Computed example of a mutant assay.
Amino acid sequence: MKLLAAVLVALSLLLPGAWGSEASRTCIFQTLSESDSEFCRGDLEVIYPEVGDVSCSYIPKCHGYRRQLSHEWGKPRVRYPWAKKHKKYVLVMVDPDSPNRADPRNRFWRHWLVTDILGSDLRAGKIRGKVLTSYSRPKPPRYSGYHRYQFRLYRQPAHESIALSPEEQDSLGTWDLKDFVENFHLGYPVASTQFLTKHYED
């Protein structure tokens, strides 16, 4: 991540016209504050091909990255190098700050939910399994400040068939993540990470 930031800064200095804009001189993926970085555990990588691993960082506004994240980029590669090859895993992506961090009355907003992911695929950054909620791009509302987009990886108990209730399928918001985890005996995440972003015009 730090290497990527250094490369982006170097390119901004070398490209013609780079000095014409303040954004191009300061395009750095800043790491999260100490309190937010504590959520990042277990070396879980979230990789958007256009920029690389965004785990435990802020998405910068420069080069249109926030806009592209919300409107153009597809789902990221999620890689967990310590996955057990023959075990299965559950990947959850949620926004705990809906509609904003000060008043998260729609917590948790579900952005992606995949079960039955083989550890061998996770090691390669391939999320193949049973998709219970298709990937939804992060789209923080205008003037709502920074939102955390959290990725939680659970080991799936053997022979456990996981599904959403009809009520859960009908709504992405106000999802009871704790209840879901307890119902299917998922326990604590084996790894977790997050990135922060806000509306691209803010």
Rank of each mutant, 00 (worst) to 15 (best):
M1S: 13
K2Y: 09
L4D: 09
V7S: 10
L8Q: 04
L8C: 05
A10W: 07
S12P: 07
S12H: 05
L13F: 10
W19M: 10
W19L: 13
S21Q: 13
S21H: 13
E22D: 13
A23K: 14
A23V: 07
S24A: 13
S24T: 14
T26L: 10
C27H: 09
T31N: 10
L32Y: 05
L32R: 00
S33E: 09
S33R: 14
S37F: 02
E38V: 12
C40I: 00
R41A: 10
D43N: 15
L44W: 02
E45D: 09
V46N: 04
E50S: 08
V51T: 08
G52L: 05
G52S: 04
S55W: 06
C56V: 02
Y58R: 11
Y58K: 10
P60F: 13
K61I: 10
C62R: 04
G64P: 01
Y65I: 12
Y65E: 04
R66F: 05
R67Q: 14
H71G: 04
E72K: 12
W73G: 01
P76E: 09
R77C: 04
V78G: 03
V78A: 00
P81C: 07
P81W: 07
W82S: 14
K85Y: 08
H86S: 14
Y89I: 00
V90G: 01
V90T: 10
V92W: 03
M93N: 15
M93L: 14
V94M: 01
D95H: 05
D95R: 05
D97Q: 07
N100Q: 09
D103I: 12
R105N: 11
R105Q: 12
W109E: 15
R110M: 15
H111L: 15
L113D: 09
V114T: 03
V114W: 01
L118G: 06
D121I: 03
L122T: 05
L122M: 02
K130E: 14
T133L: 12
T133P: 06
S136D: 11
S136Q: 12
R137W: 06
R137S: 10
K139S: 11
P141F: 14
P141E: 15
P141H: 14
Y143R: 05
S144F: 02
G145C: 01
G145R: 05
Y146D: 12
Y146E: 12
R148M: 00
Q150D: 07
F151Y: 15
F151N: 02
R152V: 04
L153C: 05
R155L: 11
H159Q: 12
A163C: 05
A163R: 15
L164C: 06
P166L: 07
Q169P: 02
L172H: 09
T174P: 00
T174L: 07
W175K: 08
L177C: 03
L177M: 06
L177P: 00
V181R: 08
N183T: 15
F184G: 02
H185A: 13
H185Q: 13
P189F: 00
V190H: 01
A191E: 00
S192T: 11
Q194F: 01
F195I: 01
F195C: 01
T197W: 01
T197A: 11
K198A: 08
K198S: 11
H199E: 11
Y200I: 06
Y200A: 06
